[in-house]
Design a binder for these strands. Structure first.
Length: 873
RNA sequence: GCCCGAGUGGCGGAAUUGGUAGACGCAGCGGACUCAAAAUCCGCCGCCCUUAAAAGCGUGUCGGUUCGACUCCGACCUCGGGCACCA
């Protein structure tokens, strides 16, 4: 055994040992593990090129779970794969003139090699790469099944259009309303695309998130609940007035959805989206309206933009009739009404809705108060807006429905509407169907063929996969598949005539909706097989909080679809979910004349902080001139604030890297990266090594004897109570305090200064090594072997977690806190079984306590057993 | 704008979920060892007053509940995540 700790040698030896054992290959029904299977998985990474500290944190977390659960006797499996399709590969292609496939595969190879030194327990025989035809063929296959079931369907969608580059832009590619490369003002454009009917599953998705996903963080459940957004309300039809009737050449009605049917008599205008059919029809005869709609079309489609923009509208001059009074109501086109939600039209009730109020005020529309406040918060509605105006109350000025409370009014109005055939109660979800078409090259081809004779025809199942050519290089102007004859030309599956392939590809969220099921069954000739049934549902899923809604909802939906097709037998894919926080880093930029930002690497910048640690200014090292401080943001390639683990591992070793990222803070919270305290963790591992080296001869020879000495008993109690805390923290995945616990154990063991204490040392070190092992597996593995524990208890991989001994935790005397009126005034040591009376008099006998109690009557005494006594005077 | 989080010493954070605020570590200060440095070891380390002791203040801000609040409730401020084509 070397005298000093050499991480490189230790880690090479440990990894060689595990490699020789093929230690992480997981086998279904492995008889070595009586407690059954445990499937732990981290969200698969996008192969951006370099592994960064954020990845390190995620996968260390994953690895700690793996090792802890295996030490607890489970047949644990943890896989790894690559989310290999997506936009960044196309961007790299444009910039570097290299095919996305080539770039992606090179990145995968690079990142895989960066994983190697970390000692992660991945079962690489299960690797999934989503751009492999053998993977994405099943995306296509399930898509065809969904088409058959009517879950997948075709309809128009609104996208960001860059009129200069003639290309569809992702939201991310829109900066301040302009295309990121061309700088042109972005427009909205309607094109056909495929949707998946996730809204059909909205009730079940909601039901489970409210009642069955107990292993999920409350925060995520709330976010999903709000995202699905169930509203109970009414659908109301406002029949067309003659002017609208003649324009639309129909005697239809304008349908709206409202949660406030009780306010229907307060409707003073109707607001419709710019893309609404009535708006489009009206625009044909009105230049002003056409111009306004054109204006609404400008700008991107992001909801954050729509919600913050000034609410504007224009009257159409058309009318509908109030369903009860028959009064004509004017239709307005408004930029805040979304075509994608509800009916694309709302009834404007300015008296009781803040947005309508603002809109009416702005456009000089009538405000009709139809609800009377029950709390007397207002008599009449007038400027400025008060939140009380939208509260429930008693209906007034509402004809036969006046004088009713909210629920009674809604019930009565809905019943009356239903009788007239002008409405009914309905549940509306905020959730929208999932548009999966992308006008992009680097994704799963949508298996559809366009035939001049037969129209839109699905590819036959036997012709799957539709393989994506891997040698195209996009140039930023449209989808290169549109220019690739080899890909385009095909025969119509129905009539056999020459036809053309669909060139849209699928959203990459499709790939990530089920990869974790494919990990379970590498090489299967079907989408999933019986091995999937063994490992799924996943026991522990780990991933970033930024995926709380989209990915985690799509994956749940996809699972339900697979279940309904008979492919799997469970309802939910993820039993327990852990959302880890992100690693953040400082970022710096400079803006050029056109407003474009250039981001600097932290290494290119010198940052100055004031004495409170707040950044004050920064200059670029290259020219000494100031750069703008962009705050602390999530590590991302586009902001150049990524910290790579390579250097760090070279300096300190993988165990220090692992222990340090765990020690840095609670894993479910985001943390700013800083390596200043890494020294402390490394020092701890060196001390551990030195301590074991010092006792390398006594420990293997130790005999088990009782610890009777009072000082040693105290140390032993500390050891066992720290162990208890560590196990609790393992369970709740608070690994930062697990590392603290290991440090405390070493601190305690170092106070053993007696040569005859070998029993305690033997026990203590065996506990410490096993507690630290999941976090720092290499050093603990080597020490475990060197000190003879492996011979005694077997390989550390499968050595059971130690358990605290009740006898070791027992205390004869307790120190209680003494409070007077809730303020700490002293301590008192009493026998463990002392009576309340005895404790009380002991507490009152205390000098400082006397001083505060003196002369005042004691009103109450509160005793918290084993903790404190509070005297209230 | 809407939804979800977070805010504790100079810094990262702890407080087993209403019961001793600051565990564990970093940085800093003092000391030992050393010709010296590094490494290592020992001690101190929230603020204020003070020679010291004792008291007082203290978990973003303001208010409330409680014998007792970092923890629960209300309002606000700041920062972070998401908002459906980044992944």
């Amino acid at each position: 055994m070397d005298e000093s700790y050499d991480p490189a040698a230790v880690e090479a030896a440990a990894q060689q040992h595990w490699r020789a054992l093929d230690a992480y290959r997981a086998v279904e029904h492995d008889p070595r593990f009586p407690r059954g299977k445990f499937y732990v998985c981290s969200m698969l990474p996008y192969p951006s090129g370099k592994l960064h500290m954020g990845h390190m944190r995620n996968y260390t977390l994953n690895d700690v779970v793996y090792r802890f659960m295996r030490s607890s006797g489970f047949n644990v499996m943890t896989p790894m794969g690559w989310d290999a399709f997506g936009l960044p590969a196309e961007n790299a292609a444009i910039e570097k003139r290299v095919a996305p496939a080539q770039w992606t595969r090179a990145n995968i190879a690079g990142m895989k090699s960066q994983f190697a030194p970390m000692g992660f327990a991945f079962d690489w025989s299960r690797e999934v790469t989503t751009c492999d035809p053998e993977y994405y063929r099943w995306n296509q296959w399930l898509f065809l099944k969904m088409l058959e079931k009517g879950i997948a369907y075709r309809k128009t969608q609104i996208v960001n259009w860059d009129p200069v580059d003639q290309t569809v832009l992702a939201n991310e590619q829109v900066e301040d309303g302009r295309g990121w490369r061309s700088g042109a003002i972005v427009e909205k454009r309607e094109i056909p695309g495929y949707y998946l009917a996730i809204t059909r599953y909205a009730p079940e998705l909601l039901e489970h998130v409210q009642h069955t996903l107990g292993g999920w963080p409350a925060q995520v459940r709330t976010m999903q609940e709000n995202w699905i957004g169930r509203s109970d309300g009414c659908e109301i039809s406002f029949p067309y007035a003659p002017d609208t009737r003649s324009l639309m050449k129909s005697d239809g009605a304008l349908k709206v959805f409202t949660t406030r049917a009780d306010t229907v008599f307060g409707t003073t205008f109707m607001a419709i989206a710019a893309e609404h059919p009535i708006a489009l029809a009206a625009a044909e005869t009105s230049a002003r309206l056409a111009a306004f709609i054109e204006e609404c079309r400008r700008g991107a489609v992001m909801e954050a933009n729509l919600a913050t923009q000034e609410k504007r509208g224009l009257a159409t001059g058309l009318h509908v009739l109030h369903p009860f009074t028959g009064e004509p109501i004017e239709i307005w086109v408004a930029n805040y009404v979304l075509m994608g939600y509800g009916e694309g039209a709302v009834m404007g009730v300015p008296a009781h809705d803040e947005r309508d109020f603002e809109f009416a005020h702005h456009n000089g529309l009538r405000i009709a108060c139809v609800v009377k406040s029950t709390s007397g918060a207002y008599e009449e509605v007038r400027e400025p807006w008060k939140p009380a105006y939208s509260e429930y109350g008693i209906t007034v000025n509402s004809g036969e429905f006046s004088g009713l409370g909210y629920e009674a009014a809604v019930a009565a109005i809905a019943a009356a509407l239903e009788k007239k055939g002008l409405g009914r109660k309905r549940v509306q979800y905020r959730l929208r169907d999932w548009g999966i078409s992308r006008q992009r090259y680097w994704g799963t081809p949508i298996p559809i063929v366009h035939c001049n004779v037969c129209g839109v025809v699905p590819v036959a199942e036997k012709d799957l996969p539709v393989v994506l050519p891997e040698d195209l290089v996009p140039d930023g102007t449209g989808n290169p598949l549109n220019k690739d004859e080899r890909f385009l030309a095909c025969a119509c599956p129905r009539c056999g005539q020459g036809a053309r392939r669909e060139t849209d590809t699928m959203d990459t969220f499709v790939d990530s909706s089920w990869y974790y099921m494919r990990y379970c069954c590498p090489g299967a000739q079907t989408m999933v097989d019986e091995r999937t049934a063994y490992w799924m549902p996943m026991d522990q899923y780990i991933g970033g909080i930024e995926h709380a809604v989209l990915h985690l909802l799509y994956a749940r939906f996809w699972t339900m679809v697979m279940r309904d097709l008979g492919l799997v037998r469970f309802d939910e894919p993820f039993e327990r979910l852990f959302t880890q926080g992100m690693l953040l880093a400082h970022c710096y930029y400079r803006e050029d004349a056109s407003g474009r930002k250039r981001w600097f690497y932290p290494a290119e910048v010198e940052q100055e902080f004031d004495e409170r640690g707040t950044p004050v200014s920064a200059v670029a090292t290259e020219d000494g001139k100031p750069v703008m401080y962009g705050g602390i943001e999530k590590m991302s390639k586009s902001k150049n604030n990524v910290v790579e683990p390579g250097e760090f591992i070279k300096r300190f070793g993988a165990d220090t890297a692992r222990a340090f990222v765990m020690f840095a803070g609670p894993p479910d919270q985001s943390a700013p990266w800083s390596d200043t305290s890494a020294e402390g963790v490394h020092r701890f591992l060196r001390r551990l090594w030195a301590f074991c080296h010092e006792h390398r001869e006594q420990i293997p020879l130790a005999k088990r004897t009782q610890v009777t000495d009072a000082t040693l008993k105290k140390i032993r109690r500390e050891l066992h109570s720290t162990l208890q805390q560590a196990l609790f923290d393992y369970q709740r995945m608070q690994y930062n305090t697990v590392v603290s616990a290991a440090m405390k154990m070493l601190n305690a063991l170092e106070t053993v200064k007696r040569p005859d204490a070998v029993t305690l040392l033997h026990e203590g070190v065996s506990i410490l090594l096993r507690v630290l092992y999941p976090v720092a597996p290499h050093i603990t593995h080597v020490l475990w072997q060197e000190l003879g524990y492996a011979a005694e208890m077997g390989d550390l991989l499968d050595a059971p977690m130690p358990q605290p001994e009740p006898a070791a935790l027992h205390q004869d005397e307790l120190e209680l806190v003494v409070q007077v009126n809730g303020k700490l005034r002293g301590h008192v040591t009493v026998a463990a079984e002392a009576s309340e009376e005895a404790i009380k008099s002991a507490a009152l006998a205390q000098q400082p306590v006397q001083r505060f109690v003196e002369g005042k009557p004691i009103r109450k005494v509160i005793l918290v057993p084993g903790k404190l006594i509070n005297i209230v005077v």
